[in-house]
Design a protein around this nucleic acid. Sequence first.
DNA 1: ATTCCAAATTGACATTTATCAAGCCGCAAT
DNA 2: ATTGCGGCTTGATAAATGTCAATTTGGAAT
Lengths: 232, 232
Amino acid sequence: MRQDELKEIRELDLFRSMDESVFGDIMNAAYLQTFPSQVELIREGDPADFFYVVIEGCVELFARSNGRETTMALVRPIGTFILAAVLKEAVYLMSARTSLRSRIVMIPSRDIRQAVSNDQEFARSMIIELAGCYRAVVKEHKNLKLRTAVERLANRLMKYHQDQGGNGSMELPYDKKTLAALLGMTPENLSRAFNTLKPYGVVVKGTRIDLTDLESLATLAKSNRLIDDRNT
Amino acid sequence: MRQDELKEIRELDLFRSMDESVFGDIMNAAYLQTFPSQVELIREGDPADFFYVVIEGCVELFARSNGRETTMALVRPIGTFILAAVLKEAVYLMSARTSLRSRIVMIPSRDIRQAVSNDQEFARSMIIELAGCYRAVVKEHKNLKLRTAVERLANRLMKYHQDQGGNGSMELPYDKKTLAALLGMTPENLSRAFNTLKPYGVVVKGTRIDLTDLESLATLAKSNRLIDDRNT
DNA sequence: ATTCCAAATTGACATTTATCAAGCCGCAAT
DNA sequence: ATTGCGGCTTGATAAATGTCAATTTGGAAT
């Protein structure tokens, strides 16, 4: 692993206050691999053998049941996934596939659990991290249960817009098919939802979206910090 | 607090391996209170001042946005709620109200956080507990995103049926309005969903439900241990 | 037994979302 | 410029779910 990558991982909240030697142990046990796009990294139901850190690229977490499939989340650098399964020594609840060519660190579950036992600071970070993950899913669940598809889209657009500087224009970070799955709707429905938002100043040009009437969009979106804020 | 109640709390996974003296400290700081039905215990958005343990009765966790409201979960004895907010020193993401007259232990957040710092075993239990909470919401989210209302009901019935011994008959643990909210549908829709399940051997007599054709019900439900199993 | 009330059900209808098929658009390869 | 392809959009329709109003039902209180 390259020095700058090691440093980036070290700066993750999860590893920041970790004991230096324990961090060294973990990273020695870890594998760094590059995967092409569309590789299935893990499959739901399999035992959690590794904990994953995305260094570069993008990973889609998804789940299947009946014949349906849905996107649960997208993990971008530097982000981690599948922590809870590793800690509980359980099977994965979600599958994961690369959605771009990606560089990924894989840390054996045993080493993660050992580090939790050996390093009190790491255990502490783990608690904060897990609590954060929990709250993120709760927010996503509220989002789905309390809002219509159009409202979910409006709020998502406003979030990306803010992330990108809030200057009236934004770029969709994923293609529309992926965005639709993430928002819990079909691509056809997403297309129609964009049309519904046209009178609210949403101008679509491919993956570039202009927001020309933020006020009326906000009125429709009715965003709620207990759903939309990444922090809090 | 009565001795037998203390003992029951002590036997929760969360407190079981805790240091005796730290447990004593926490319980000294705790309040035990009895609330009538329909009391709002916490309100989403408020700072997390207490961690809650339900000793007797039942508590409904719910969330509001726009003008809508949805039930997120029901907590029965001996169960806890709102752990993540307490650990992150954040605001509650959910509101809670008693849905029955309930005896409830309230532990100040500061004492919980202190115990996490002072007791490595407690921190360890906390990690397992949080990972479990996380996985529970992920399952609930999959349930909602991958299944229709009728399928959710079918699976829920089978779960209650199994909990109650699996002898072909079961009792709904909540009234139908609550069950509907929990399953993410309206009461009217729940009623229709029961009708839809009639051909699959679901016989409704008030809160008692007979399942006379488990096989065909299971075929429709297509249950999935990665959604429906409490463990795993 | 009667009355009353809340919960549950039903019917009619509206809205939201999904499905399927067709077509359009943009873009890369030639 | 032409072709071909995948991503996206559109239209028609169906299915799922919600809303509103009207009953019905099943207990609890008297």
